[in-house]
Structure formats: C-alpha cells, structure tokens
Amino acid sequence: MTPAVHRVVERREETRDVTTLMLEPVEGPRLAFRPGQFNMLTAFGVGEVAISVSGAPREEGPLRHTVRDVGAVSHALCQRQVGDLVGVRGPFGSDWRVSPDCAPGPILDVHDVVVIAGGIGLAPLRGAVHELVARSHETGGRVFVLVGARDPSQVVYHDDLEAWDREGAVVLVTVDRGTPEWRGRVGLVTALLADAGFDPSSTAALICGPEIMMRFSARALVDSGVDASRILVSLERNMQCGLGWCGHCQLGPFLLCRDGPVVPYSGVVSTLLNERER
C-alpha cells in the first residue's frame, strides 16, 4: 500500500518539540477519517511512523497531524516546511466512536463526557472534543476537558481550549510544574476530577496520555462511580505497517493497529495495563 503524497500547507510549533502539520493531498480529496484513528506518515527517505489524526471530520480544511519530535522519523516530520511533501497512508484503527457515522459507543447514552488528556495525548482527542462540543449543543449534554501537562509551555492547542470553554465545555488544565507566570492549577490530572462536577452515574470517558496516567485516571473514574465499560483509552505500541501484518503492535490479545488504538478500559485492558513489561 503506497502513501498518498501530501503537501504541507501550514505548520504550527505547538511547543518546543511538538509541531502540527496541516496537509493537503497533491491529488484527490482529503482522506476521510474518524476521530481517534491514525495515519502512517512518511518522511520520504527517512521512514514512516504512526501519527494520530488530530483534525475533526466536521472541520473544513487540510488534514491535521500533531507530531512530537521523539525519533528519527518524527524529527524529520517536525522539520518539514510549508511546501514540503509528506506521505500519508490510512486512516487505520479504531476511533472514539463520537461521530455520527460511528458504531454506537459508550457516549451515546450518557449525559456527561469526560475527556482526560495527558501532554500530547490531547492530539488524538482533539477531533473527538470538537464533535462532542458540537453534539452537546444538540443534546444538552455536558463536556469536561481535563488536561494535564508537564509544565505550562507543554500545553498544546490553547486556541481550541479557549474555544471549547466559550462554547460551554468545562475546560480545566493542570501542570506538574508551575512557573512564576502560571496562574492555573498545579497537580496531577486526576485531581481535576473532583473539581469537574460531572454525574458519575451518567458519564462516559475518553482518555489518552502516558500509560501510567491513563491507568490511574481510569481507576480514579471507576472509584468515583463511572462504569468501567464506558471508559475508552487509546493505547500505543510500535507500529510499522498499520495493516495487521508486521506484528510490532502486539499487546496481549490485540494487534493495536487493527483492534486499537482506542479500546474499552473494562475487562482485558484493565488487566493488560497492570501487566509488567520490562
């Protein structure tokens, strides 16, 4: 499966090591996707890496990916300038099940949706929050966006956070390390749960971030009374093909490119997240 050649039409430096690339196909229409899915992005001559789509289906314009510079390929992608070419294969994998064309997910029969993002974990959730905020205007449900970051400089998508807040979502941000200028909260992201004021008996949750953070966030939600079957998490492993062939994204019973990245927290996942890989 060959990549579709895309051109960078805009880039935004979100933080010191995080860049958002806006891509338009050289030929043909924008790829259709559902929030939570990922694409395989090729930096030609360097390699290919799995990056979640951070756009929203109902958002006009180019295809949006936010890349953290953590390896050779992601570094090359972050260096791409406007006009440069990037290959895109996808979309692959499961999604947050929030858009109207999705199979019914846990958000459908609840009043409140809690979205918990750790660091760059907000990227795969961004499209979902867009959908949820728009949907809340139709259903009257509430959306809570809880964001944890290492320090204030690592908080991404400030414009979106402000827009969601204006549009009625409860947006709370906390950082592990404050700065003299930081007027917001300092502490673990789970500490925000007490402040959010959602109704645990009618709440679904979408979580993405470092695995430890997802594990403890999911447990805190369950402890507060949220039904574990209504919690979705997005898992990550090495991915090289996106097609279920290469075997790198093994995690217990899952091939994460095929069965994930978004999986329900209840059942096998809660056990897997406690398994010790080292």
Binding site: T42, G45, G47, E48, Q240, W245, C246, H248
Partner: peptide, 25 residues
C-alpha cells in the same frame, strides 16, 4: 512467525524504496 520490519532506503536521485524484512520479537 510473521513479524517484519519496514524500512526505507533512498538514493542520490531522491528515489525512495520501502523494504520489508523478517524481524523477531
């Protein structure tokens, strides 16, 4: 066992080849 690695190589003309080789867990 079906695991494979995917890696790209390039030449001086800018041509890119995507290769797949067996790998192991």
């Amino acid at each position: 066992c079906f695991c494979s690695d995917v890696h790209d190589t390039t030449d001086v003309t800018g041509a890119v080849t995507r290769n797949r080789t067996w790998s192991s867990c």
